[in-house]
Amino acid sequence: MPLLIFSIAFLALPLVRLFLASGESEAGWAIYLDILRKPRYLNTLILTVLVSLATTFAALAVSTTAGMFLSRNRFKGRGILLSIMTLPLAFPGVVIGFLIILLGGRQGLINQITPGHVVFAYSVIGLFLGYLYFSIPRVLLTVMAAAEKLDPVLEEAARTLGASPFRVVIDVILPGLMPSLVAAGAIAFATAMGAFGTAFTLATNIDVIPMVIYTEFTLSANIAMAAALSIVLGIVTWALLLIARSLSGTTVAAGG
């Protein structure tokens, strides 16, 4: 099968080569320990995880609210709102970075309409907003797909048993959505961890893992470290998406 040949030549072999390359520096395989030992890499790791976590929870909160609202209500303009919220699915990370610059850069909207000097595009906040921009559509689609599958009869049954609308959300809707929420969260987290394009435009002064990989590779020519970080990052995102898929059965395109 041509597929097998293609994926062995351009997927399996390169990945094996990448793994071998990670052990070719003086540090040898201990390079993986260096990631945890050297403050530069450890701090990067912690920062990346923190920003990704913040993105994940923010995206879950926003998209679950909006998703439930959009799937439970039919009104004029719903289709337009839905289109707007899924539009960024195909935007590469660089474009999203640029859009954040237009919001929070020196010539950005916020800086122009507020009296003070508010520039946040190149800070961690800007990066967070960029990741959020990226994650909202993906989480939204997963949540809405799950919400459509939720049997409305369960909610009606809870209501006939005397549950208030708030209790219905706590007792019926959230438990029903939970697998999809975990899955969507894993997708958001994995995407944020690996997002290169957005970081490339916004994180010129912030060390997040993809940026460090990039600079190690291009500027410091520290190929072994770049390879080792790539392997760690790849395994983390792959494992997360595997969990996500086993929980929800869907895959939304990662990348960016």
Partner: peptide
């Protein structure tokens, strides 16, 4: 296996291709 590129960041894949 062929779905790996969905999960592994493009940066890592690119590095792998460049290495080989």
């Amino acid at each position: 296996f062929i779905s790996l590129p969905l999960a592994v960041p493009g940066l890592a894949l690119a590095l792998a291709l460049l290495q080989l």
